[in-house]
Design a protein around this nucleic acid. Structure first.
Length: 434
RNA sequence: CGGGGCGUAGCUCAGCCUGGUAGAGCGCUAGCUUUGGGAGCUAGAAGCCGGAGGUUCGAAUCCUCUCGCCCCGACCA
């Protein structure tokens, strides 16, 4: 993409309404614009990141054996009356009336809808287990939306739902999702810590929240420091094998949210206890038959009897992750994207547009990098280009200037470390395998 | 939902107390000069001062109502 043609409205100054760093940087880097409280437009650069995050989530869900579908954003109130949550959910649910005066709602979550789809189409135990998921916009009419996309009212969420014949099988589904979450966050360069959590109004007895530690996190969390030091990124996982030992290992150290905090147990940890703030990026529940019972989701069991299926649900805040990533990866100059989620891998800076040698070298590089490069071909001063490129945080900058190019050299700068090296054009192309 | 704050140019803000021609910096447009870390000079464009009522000869400014946004708390699959 040529920057001269790209829709990238960066801001030099901090917008007054943005208090936390990820919100400020998303606005300044031209990723989002607010359109109402807690409701945002994703501009091209932000949208690219959101799609990359979404794609990683999707790939890891698929790998864990979940199947993607897509449910609508608008739901009929009837479904929610079946489960009893139409009244329970309260004002967080955005209720809508259509032209025929039918009660509708903008879905805050999809347990009811998926349960109805399941019960209408799966009738025999041999079709179990099933894990179904979608990545869809949700709306929760938060009393106080804040922190940009971290707590928006409209947000993109991956929600998966498991259906099993019995509790042991349900636990296996839970474990699959548990492990896939670890893999998902690790692929993005994030260290997520699974914490025993309250099940809240959703019910059930088994639940974990996945938190990214950050000063700006909304939740108070307590964790054994050993966990923080564990690196999870290169673990191999066999989803068809027994995942319980791995889950046990990951839940064996003390890590809890505030609601589950036990001061007595924590005291025994002494200096090993870390009290921190966390951003909740995932939450998984095993809630048994809460919905299947209320909504009559049953299958014919091995002996011909009706069995109410065991369910679980598994959420990842996809749009919130974009904010969490920035909270985790930034400096004073701007964002520092991990490569896996960077909107472009390389930022190409032409320091002297109009100079035949600079232009020619840039065109060569631009063509070679293909779709993964953002080429700053604007007729601007060097400082402006450096500042913008640092702000939007592409992992690599290739800087082409008249001084270097006279000797056939360009500069390769790492956004993360700031290290620069002079390389020939060929060496740069080889470095990136293009 | 309680408490607090703010709506004036694209952005950051001054002006309001004490009513009297709508302002600055950055950004934008054009020209000239510059050109490796957010340049300089010159000339411009740009605002229903969030909205509606009211007071007044006269309202960005005072009063009433209203809408929106932000922060703290409570809330939060």
């Amino acid at each position: 993409m040529r920057l001269s043609a790209y829709f990238l409205p960066t801001l030099k100054e901090n917008p007054a309404e943005a208090q936390i760093v990820s919100h400020r940087l998303m606005l300044r880097a031209g990723m989002i614009r607010q359109t109402a409280a807690g409701i945002y437009t994703w501009l091209p650069l932000g949208w690219r990141v959101l799609r990359k995050v979404e794609q990683i989530v999707r790939e890891e869900q698929d790998r864990a054996g979940a199947q993607e579908l897509l449910m609508p954003t608008i739901q009929a109130a009837e479904l929610w009356k079946e489960s009893g949550r139409y009244d329970d959910y309260g004002k967080e649910m955005l209720r809508i009336t259509d032209r025929h005066d039918r009660e509708m709602l903008f879905g805050p979550t999809n347990e009811e809808m998926i349960t109805s789809i399941f019960r209408d189409n799966v009738k025999r135990y041999r079709d179990l287990p099933k894990i179904l998921y979608h990545i869809q916009w949700k709306f929760r009419d938060e009393v106080r939306p804040r922190f940009g996309v971290m707590r928006g009212r409209e947000f993109l969420m991956k929600d998966a739902y498991s259906f099993d014949l019995d509790k042991a099988a349900a636990r296996r589904s839970y474990n699959r999702m548990f492990i896939s979450y670890m893999k998902t966050f690790a692929r993005m360069g994030l260290k997520a810590i699974p914490m025993r959590a309250d099940t809240g109004p959703i019910g059930g007895d088994l639940s974990h929240e996945f938190h990214i530690l950050a000063e700006t996190g909304e939740s108070a969390v307590f964790v054994h420091k050993d966990f923080i030091e564990t690196d999870w990124r290169n673990r191999d996982v066999d989803y068809d094998g027994d995942l319980q030992p791995m889950v046990d290992e990951l839940t064996g150290t003390y890590a809890v949210t505030e609601e589950k905090h036990d001061p007595a147990v924590a005291a025994a940890l002494g200096d090993n206890l870390v009290s921190a703030r966390g951003i909740e990026v995932g939450h998984i529940f095993n809630f048994g038959t809460k919905y299947s019972k209320a909504m009559n989701a049953v299958v014919a069991g091995p002996n011909g009897e009706n069995v109410t299926v065991e369910m679980g649900s598994y959420g990842i805040g996809v749009s919130r992750l974009v904010g969490a990533l920035i909270e985790a990866y930034h400096d004073d100059a701007g964002i520092i994207w991990p490569e896996a989620v960077a909107p472009f891998k390389v930022g190409l800076i032409n320091l002297k547009k109009g100079d035949p040698r600079c232009d020619a070298a840039c065109e060569t590089l631009y063509r070679a990098f293909g779709s993964d490069v953002l080429y700053d071909n604007r007729d601007d001063r060097a400082g402006v280009k450096f500042a913008d490129m640092d702000l939007i945080g592409l992992p690599w900058q290739v800087i082409v200037g008249p001084k270097g190019i006279a000797g056939g050299k360009v500069e390769l700068k790492s956004r993360q470390t700031g290290d620069r090296q002079e390389l020939s054009l060929e060496a740069v192309l080889e470095r990136f395998g293009v």
